[in-house]
């Protein structure tokens, strides 16, 4: 009893100044970045604005994918490594539907209908694949050590990539598809805004809001949060835990499906190993925002999108993009390990 009291009083004064120093250093770094961004913004406002626009478009895609990581992690603490590859499959599927099936290569009534249909099919297909993966691979490992489902996810990632590599998918080399808008866009003042960016954001924002609504306001969302905190206790409330987890995989898959189509419509190419890079960025976004936290994933996604866009256009150039992304991640992990919106884990057990 007295011993713990002594230990506590010994530790406290030593830790406090260090923590203050670390957070002061963190604040200093953030301030430096903000100053740099402001400086660039004042120096060349047009370029800055168009980089923000492009970054927001990418950020929206990262956010969509990041939500799939964060929701699955939130409910069963699994880092679903195959999620990026699921997204990749969706890019290819949407390309096949839009181009091979409906010949979408320019804007028009028919094209909008075809893309909308492809969006729905991509979302449904990705949701279905994700649900099947949970049912077949992850469910039986739910009580196994954490490493088992993790390795299973890596295995699924390889399987999806193998499938993406088939000739009717992308084959081994990057494959190109025509898109509805191409590089078309419009100008606000001197700032170029591509139509695809508008489309991406116009579809992403409602989806993000829908997710937050589902999780926070609906009965299913209440069940999700309960299962995330304590599965057995949730069962004692009458919550069907299996069905709730299935639902989360369906939602995450659906978002990856939407991201797949939107990505292909913005970029026009896909590759069997696209999911690795995009998945890694999106996962980083999820961790950055605070894994398990929906708003955090969205924030992290937009933050990374805009940051890497600014870096590509103004700072170090595209070859340093990933370096910057991970530097930000590492710095944040040092100063705020729980992520921007994550809560420190101090729950009573």
């Amino acid at each position: 009893m007295t011993q713990t009291a002594i230990a506590a009083s010994e530790v406290k004064p030593r830790r406090l100044p260090r923590e203050t120093a670390v957070s002061a250093l963190g604040l200093l770094l953030v301030a430096a970045v903000v100053v740099w961004v402001l400086y660039e913004a004042i120096k060349s406002p047009q370029e800055f604005a168009s980089l923000i626009v492009a970054g927001a478009g990418n950020g929206a895609l990262y956010a969509l994918i990041a939500l799939g990581y964060t929701m699955v992690y939130g409910i069963i603490e699994l880092i679903n490594f195959s999620h990026g590859d699921l997204f990749m499959l969706a890019t290819v599927l949407s390309g096949i539907i839009c181009v091979s099936l409906f010949n979408v290569d320019s804007f028009g009534f028919g094209a909008v209908g075809a893309v909308a249909l492809a969006l729905l099919i991509s979302m449904a297909a990705a949701a279905l694949v994700n649900v099947a993966a949970e049912r077949v691979a992850y469910r039986r490992l739910r009580r196994a050590p954490k490493l088992a489902p993790l390795i299973t996810a890596v295995g699924l990632s390889f399987m999806y990539q193998w499938f993406g590599q088939r000739q009717f998918m992308t084959g081994s080399a990057p494959k190109q598809w025509s898109t509805m808008f191409g590089d078309d866009g419009f100008n606000i003042g001197d700032v170029r805004v591509p139509y695809t960016t508008v489309t991406v954001i116009a579809i992403t924002i409602p989806l993000l809001l829908l997710m937050v609504y589902i999780v926070q306001r609906t009965r299913a969302g209440k069940a999700m949060r309960a299962v995330a905190q304590d599965q057995d206790a949730a069962r004692l409330m009458g919550i069907d835990v299996d069905r709730t987890i299935t639902f989360v995989f369906a939602l995450g898959g659906g978002l990856a499906g939407a991201a797949g189509l939107l990505y292909l419509q913005s970029v026009g190419t896909s590759n069997y190993n696209l999911g690795f890079r995009l998945g890694l960025i999106a996962f980083t976004a999820a961790v950055l925002g605070g894994i398990g936290n929906l708003q955090g994933a969205v924030l992290g996604g937009f933050l990374l999108g805009i940051l890497s866009s600014l870096n590509d256009g103004m700072l170090l150039g595209q070859q340093w993009s990933m370096t910057v992304v991970f530097t930000v991640l590492i710095l944040l992990m040092v100063f705020k390990p729980e992520g921007i919106l994550g809560s420190p884990t101090t729950e009573k057990v």
Partner: peptide
């Protein structure tokens, strides 16, 4: 059932 160890939902 009120289970052993309370098992309330701590974040709610």
């Amino acid at each position: 059932q009120s289970p052993e160890g309370r098992r309330i939902f701590p974040k709610m």
